[in-house]
Design a protein around this nucleic acid. Sequence first.
DNA 1: TAATTGTTGGATGTCGACATTATGCAAAAT
DNA 2: ATTTTGCATAATGTCGACATCCAACAATTA
Lengths: 214, 214
Amino acid sequence: MLLTKETYSSQVARIIRQMIRDGELQQGAPVKEAVLAARLSISRAPIREALQELTYEGLVTSEPQKGKRVRQLSDDDILNSYDVGAILEAAGVVDSLGDWSEGDMLRLRAVVDDMHNAAQTATDLSSMMNLDDLFHATLLQRCNNSRLVEMARLSCITISKVLCYKKWLTIFSPEGFAKRHQSIAEVVCAKNIRKVETMLRQHYREIGERVVAR
Amino acid sequence: MLLTKETYSSQVARIIRQMIRDGELQQGAPVKEAVLAARLSISRAPIREALQELTYEGLVTSEPQKGKRVRQLSDDDILNSYDVGAILEAAGVVDSLGDWSEGDMLRLRAVVDDMHNAAQTATDLSSMMNLDDLFHATLLQRCNNSRLVEMARLSCITISKVLCYKKWLTIFSPEGFAKRHQSIAEVVCAKNIRKVETMLRQHYREIGERVVAR
DNA sequence: TAATTGTTGGATGTCGACATTATGCAAAAT
DNA sequence: ATTTTGCATAATGTCGACATCCAACAATTA
């Protein structure tokens, strides 16, 4: 057993992310260090580090000497984030598609199958979100540009699935969601480069627009 | 006159960036908080915040409880960074090229002219680097995705022009550098979308390879 | 009354000190 | 001789307190 002696800062960052995701800290609301410190019974130092981390992730905005707030995403912010995510993911897939083996394609199709199953059993919707993460990670399974993978994740996954968590859960029907990803998987497995690019861009654009519409 | 009461942290971040760029802090070298604190005659707190900022910029690596070091870029890191920068910049230009006015094109050509002039007078090479920054910023002058612009900058400008500063100054002859950018400008002004994309990707790839070759 | 000027409370930025952890070396054991 | 054990040192992580700054309200003036 590997017991983790994690630093306070990173634990706090995770806790605050959860608080934002669950609506305990609402968008635009001020985030006061002393309040969090008291609540977690620790000093302000690790809180500040965690908030700085979240600031660089884009979940929190910071004005020196004035304070930090949970980021309030404008419609353009949301669309822009999804666009950047789409651009990077599409490029990553297209550039690495030549290296895909049969096994790689099977793996992608398996994720789609899981989505269909989840759409049937469908106890909670968050499992669908996990499958979505897995799907997009699988799309980049052969991408050897780790920086691209990281930035794609940072760009849309982090922001949209923390700040827009509740909206996210309602933008598609489970079946529709599975079908959309199946279409993408088919085009990818057919190695139709041109179509992969346009489909992914459109896929993200549509998600962005639906999130904005709420 | 607007006098700026800047926080220590951000000033320190800028100072450390300079130290890295100028080789005072070498790649892979440990960065000790106490040393910097003593040198700047301030406490460790602002130093820590600055180092965290640089960590998120990718200039510094951090291992909890072990310390921070100036990032040592592998060849792949460099190539990956430039690839991501190229992907984003190309997409940003292509998506916004329809909005370009005559004035926008004149502005881009003016930068190229300045490059040619600088190649003649050529007192110091760092002015060429500033023109390079300006050129690529001008390419994205009509891109309304601020997030894309920011991430493109973060991806390659920051890393390459801080960590690879000295190599960067020697990878092209001033004339060759100006000519390359002129070619790009011409294709952009012709609004040849397909070619813009391939040229930019190739441009960055070539820079990356030359930097690696040193 | 409206605008300007103290003033007060609260939050952030910074500090110095302590607690904890990692690394290297020396001593002891097999 | 090699490995293990146990310090000693130095660096980071965390703490509590102070200094500084911002925002809102009260007091003053025109």
